[in-house]
Write a protein that binds this DNA or RNA. Structure first.
Lengths: 236, 236
DNA sequence: AGGAATAAAATTGGATCCAAAATGATATTT
DNA sequence: AAATATCATTTTGGATCCAATTTTATTCCT
């Protein structure tokens, strides 16, 4: 829980890669003692977001462009696999949900552009679409690993490149074709589209990384999480 | 480090799945205080070997046969991907190392059977062979995720089914063909063999799980790790 | 006697404390 | 003046302590 907050802080880039994580300072900033902070750090270290060195504490992990590239490649393969596994599990209800997400995307892109106010909703629709396919696939490892890959700064689904209409339009069209293929039970075809869908995002992100400065990449946070609340049991 | 020991204990099956992890007792058994134990538990929880519930502590995670099956399927795909990525990176030195492992397997299997004393060496050769391919592939995510999948009890490379000569012989023959294909730069073909190599292991393990009792599965521990020592800097 | 309510024990989670190690600063020597 | 050595400060890692919650045991009531 303090771990979640730390993860957000790191992924939003508020802590520089390589930066040392000062336990006293961080604990105070987060308003907790060092003990829960350290358990959170241990978990983050295992998940690979921070690195630990004995007697030297934790620091924010640095990712090379090559590692970021590698993350996309594995994600492309895993999400393609999710499509092939999802196909035999398709039901009318699942197909309907997929097309609902596509329809929501259509609505958000209706004006021939993506308005500023629609960035966050589009992002959430995008995340939901991908997650739903992983759910239908029914293999929890895929969802788990894809989530881990999203924990790499810049690889995260927090980041979408909004600038060029043609690219976002094409990306949304991929979604439609994937939904079509899956609803016809054609998992291999859906997987092929998905693989290209992810690999192209990789190429595009890396080209942007090379040209412009990293700071220019837009990070769109989720809206105040009134949704997505997990089970919280409280005494009266 | 205390985490490593705990991981071993759990993977060896000395703690039953679902069993509650008593912090006081465990800390005493491991000869440490509760604080380092709890950081270790937090890390293991993130890596998915134990589950945590607020105010109820940690318990050993249970895996359904379906989850075990899922782990093999993802591992098959990841290791196949490792083959396709490794092919363009092949050098004569890498090819030599692969064939050295194959030759070692030939030696261990020379008598037309796998002697009891050769179980551990064969296991280590097997692990090294697979890891080398992942190293050549040069994508650290693959090695990381495959290692996580090995952290599932029964999916682990700690377990090899030694009983039937024909199966282990065939499995070793897969290794030879994979090495051949990779040394010729044929990553797709190597990947296809690797996928079947892993998926057949899955089928065989699950069939054994259904027929005989789980306790009959042989878990062969690594030999006292004089090798595999990580960097350890000590003051004189 | 069975079940609900209450009390006692145990266990967890967080805070504080302390020793060991690392970092940084100052002094000393060449 | 530069390099080394020594000392002080900071920071980490582990142990202990304490409050809050859960679990277990007991008592009480129907």
């Amino acid at each position: 829980m303090v771990g979640e907050r730390l993860r957000e802080v790191i992924l939003r880039g508020e802590l520089q890669p390589g930066e040392k994580l000062h336990q006293n300072r961080l604990a105070e900033q987060l308003g907790v003692s060092r003990t829960p902070l350290r358990t959170a750090l241990a978990a983050l270290a295992d998940s690979g977001l921070v690195v630990y060195e004995s007697n030297c504490g934790y620091r924010v992990r640095e990712f090379s462009p090559e590692q970021i590239r590698g993350a996309f490649i594995v994600r492309a393969e895993l999400e393609a696999l999710a499509c092939t596994l999802a196909a035999p599990n398709m039901t009318d209800a699942f197909a309907q949900q997929l097309f609902d997400f596509v329809a929501e995307g259509d609505r958000l892109l209706a004006g021939g552009q993506l308005l500023e106010d629609n960035h966050a909703p589009y992002r959430e629709m995008n995340v939901s679409f991908h997650k739903l396919i992983q759910t239908i696939a029914g293999n929890p490892w895929i969802a788990d690993f894809v989530a881990r890959l999203h924990n790499v700064p810049l690889t995260s689904d927090r980041i979408i490149l909004w600038e060029h209409w043609k690219i976002i339009h094409r990306s949304h069209d991929d979604h439609r074709r994937i939904a079509e293929a899956l609803s016809h039970g054609n998992g291999m075809r859906a997987g092929a589209i998905m693989r290209e869908h992810v690999l192209f995002a990789m190429d595009y992100l890396l080209s942007q990384l090379n040209s412009q400065s990293e700071g220019a990449l837009r990070i769109v946070p989720a809206r105040a999480n009134t949704q997505n609340r997990k089970t919280s049991k409280r005494k009266p």
